[in-house]
Design a protein around this nucleic acid. Sequence first.
DNA 1: GATTTCACGTA
DNA 2: CGTACGTGAAATCC
Length: 551
Amino acid sequence: MTENVGVDLGGWLRANQVSPGDLAGIVVEPDGSVAVAVPGGALATTPGQLLPADREIRPRWAVWSQETARALVAGGVRLTTCWDVAAVHRLLSGGWRADPAFAWACLHGVPADQIPSPASGQPDLFSFADEQQAPALGAAEALQAAELQRAALAAGNDRGIAVATARSESTVELLAAELAADGLPMNRAAIEGLLADIVGLRPRGPGDAAEIRAARDERVLRHAPSGVIADLRSNGQVRTLLAAAGIDVPDTRAWRLEEFKDKSPLVAALLEWRKAERIATTYGYAWLDEALGPDDRLRGAWTGCDGAAGRMTASSGLHNMPAVLRRAVIAEPGHLFVRADLGQIEPRVLAAVSGDAALAAAATADDMYLPVAAQLSVDRPTAKVAMIAAMYGQTTGHGGNAARRMRSAYPIAMGYLDDADRSAQAGQDLRTYGGRLIRMSGGAGAAEAESAGARTGRGRYGRNAVIQGAAAELFKMWAVTVRARAAPLGARIVLCLHDELLVHVPEDRAAQAAELVGDCLAETARRWAPGGPVRFIADITTVRCWADAKG
DNA sequence: GATTTCACGTA
DNA sequence: CGTACGTGAAATCC
């Protein structure tokens, strides 16, 4: 590779005829320098050179994985778009494993157990020597794009949406790296006040902590039959305790205890105890010390997709923080949140991916369960349950009037779900609308002596995955669109929650940002479901505190 | 000490 | 009214 650290990267890209959207491979070396490669050659440069080149030329930077973005973001470099080989590999091949050697081997049809080690130096596989990685990136993208289109065609999907999805799934990895670096604004006084109310003040030491715990336990145990004591953290002992109070249950899950709550003060106290104990153990002071930075930002690791249907994941409780704690998620001084969530996303996605014109017509309503209910001649709650049961696979009350009418009113949509269910039951892989492979083979698959339960379980999974997965693809395309358009306003996405975006924005730009978030959804919907047959809607509010947005 | 099970929070 | 995820503590396995 040419050593040309001093050369102007933008000029070099121009000289190599790189236009906006053209690929340029980049690898961050262990020493922090950056290797850039385009079809015409390669260049050693610095992270600082990437930013002006990104603004000036706007290539699509090809990277191996989110690691590159994490390294660059740490140095203040945020790229506009990318092609992430690992993200696209997960889309193409399903599952989670996506290291360069594995992705490369899959593209070349090399079986997983025959992947050469980096040291073996097979000439037909790319070398893992650092200076070879950047040139290899361009080749990987070309192979992946071709493979995506082939796979989409084979699955009867639109080829254009497959490549567009690969791009947004890639750029979401940039967003994920930024979410991890930026964190979620949280007001320290507010969260400590909430915790004090729920689990008490921060313990002064181990003895104090034990006392607080014992006091919390006592508020349950004082309702126990006299003489009976139990460790509330042991489910077996809780069951015995409940039995002593005349309550016989097979397990002690909350939903099972719900019916005894009104009659038994013991059960009521236990359920309250569980809530407090959850916050004390998982979302308590240890959590704050671990995840809340000195800058009052709550940070966790983010992935652009999980290994199943492709939703984003986050650690540090960012995706499962109890709703009461949202009260402490407060915008920084001079800032506001724009909170936006997609309304009835799953039935709308079903209408779009199945191409059911009747269901698409229902989606023109703000509340699409109203026209569906009218169509089925049932009330709204019944229509909603029937729709959700069709998408997620009911286990009880198979059939029923509403379900039968749903089949005759929306045969295309129901047929789409049934196809997914049947394929999954048979152990055949599925592809989402955007082209993500949902693996059904490989595991316990089409074994001979397989239980009926295992088959119906797979059917439910497949039925759900094509909807949940496609919804995730639409959501992420929306998110990267917002990320790009909001940046000039100084607005940043600080949380992605499956169908909800939280954007942190300077106060004087909040109204603009809120309008932009809605515009981005319209733009995304046009690109995602061309012809605009299905209406997608978002509830968008501007708030200082996350809890102030209606939930 | 590592893995599995239970439980529960979010969508 | 099902799926998915991350988490912590107890139970269980080795």
